[in-house]
Design a binder for these strands. Sequence first.
DNA 1: ATAGGGTTAG
Length: 525
Amino acid sequence: MNYAELVFSQIEQPSAFIWNTMIRGYIESSNPCRAFHCYGRMQSKNMSGDNHTYPYVLKACGLMLGLDEGREIHGEVLKRGFLSDLFVRNALISMYCRCGAIVCGRTLFDGFHYRDLVSWNSIISGYVRFGEMGEAQKLFDEIPERDVFTWAIMIDGYGKKLGDIIRGRELFDRMPERDLACWNSMINGYVNHGEMVAARDLFEEMPKRNVISWSIMIDGYVRFGNSKEALNLFNQMLHHGTKPDNISTMIAISACAQLGALDQGRWIHTYIQKNKIILDVIGQTALLDMYMKGGSLEEARTMFNRMPERNIISWNVMIAGLGINGLGEEAVELFAHMEMLGMPMDDLIFLSVLTACSHAGLVTKGLDIFRRMTSVYGIKPKLEHYGCLVDLLGRAGQLDEAKNWIQSMPMKPNSALWGSLLAACKTHQNVLLAEVSVGRLVELKADDCGVYVILSNIYAEEGMWEDVLKVRKLMSDRGIKKEAGRSVIVVDGEVEEFVSGERSHSSNKEIDLVIRSLSMMIMSV
DNA sequence: ATAGGGTTAG
């Protein structure tokens, strides 16, 4: 497109066809705003659009959700008598439907008797987009003939999160011939409803797959917490010879991040570079996150420093990661840098920086940031922020101060908050507050083994042996057991999950795995 | 030329 712009700028008087080509180019490179702007330039050069221009420009308006701009074009269409053109009319209907002005689209649809399948499909898709399946179904029943688009639009609508997947499947089974997009829509419908087994069945059954089919499945597994299967599927996709694109690689990276699968993540990163896949900020942030979650602070730093564009989430990943790795000072510095740049702030960034403060024992700094959060940025602290504050004060031994915050906070403390207070009580030997915390944890049904171990340790240190025994007995009465640590690595292209204290792997392979995953194990504990 | 399929990260 850059090259096209260069050539275009050298043409003295571009024809309408050339203008149209430029506008189409912007749309195809997902730049509808520039497409619209290009049309503006065309007009300012006293070039008027032809019957091909309007559908393009209207599509741009629809894509950028520019209802006002779309109305403007509508006016011109009327003025120049293009409303009799079916293509232009359909484009107007589609524009209104995309922008949410379905009534306007419907008026146009009803106002003319010359309609084709595109008119019908456009208006049906408008109702589908805004969840009005009833009206969509009505039109679907009235339509004189249907093509593969018509069916696909309906299947897609029923496959939405709140849609009726059963009816979607009925349509899918009824339709005369299915193309790839229909299969993908149906599978995506199951994924949206969390029915991964049904999705997988269809996926295995479908005659042909493309990168979108694979992405839908891989994304589904990531979304429902089965990143291990997501990575297996991603590897299968490569094996099948389907080339991943920016979206599918990004999904795979987030799977790696979720698993802490650093090696596989690195491999994908290299693959991206080798195959000249262009990742946007989001994809790059996913990589950054993957390195952070994989514990490679150095690679994360390099990634962050080389990013041409960073948004609040990129900063957040960095600040949170530094904090978790004990580099609170650096996290706070980064946060200060953000403030200096006048970056927009949200509640999550404060959560990260407060966590960093508490891990590094930066009490004064943390309190200051907490105060500025409301006074300067107008962000109301949530339960999690109070949790950070309590953690911060607790770790620093200011247990009474922590207790005061708990008492004055406007919401009910949760188990994480009591848990962190309990941990602080252990560090700073406070039996009374520890007992209160355990009491609350029991109330919240969050009394796992760690809670009792801590409590009995506190008693032990105070020499309160009877209480120690009481706790131990309570534990066995309640059948509380120690939970296993988990970690995941990739061996010979297979994703393996590890559960410490469990012998699920064959013995010689297991030894190999143990050696190769030692560092992962340490990190996951 | 206008209508349908994966949009994501903390």
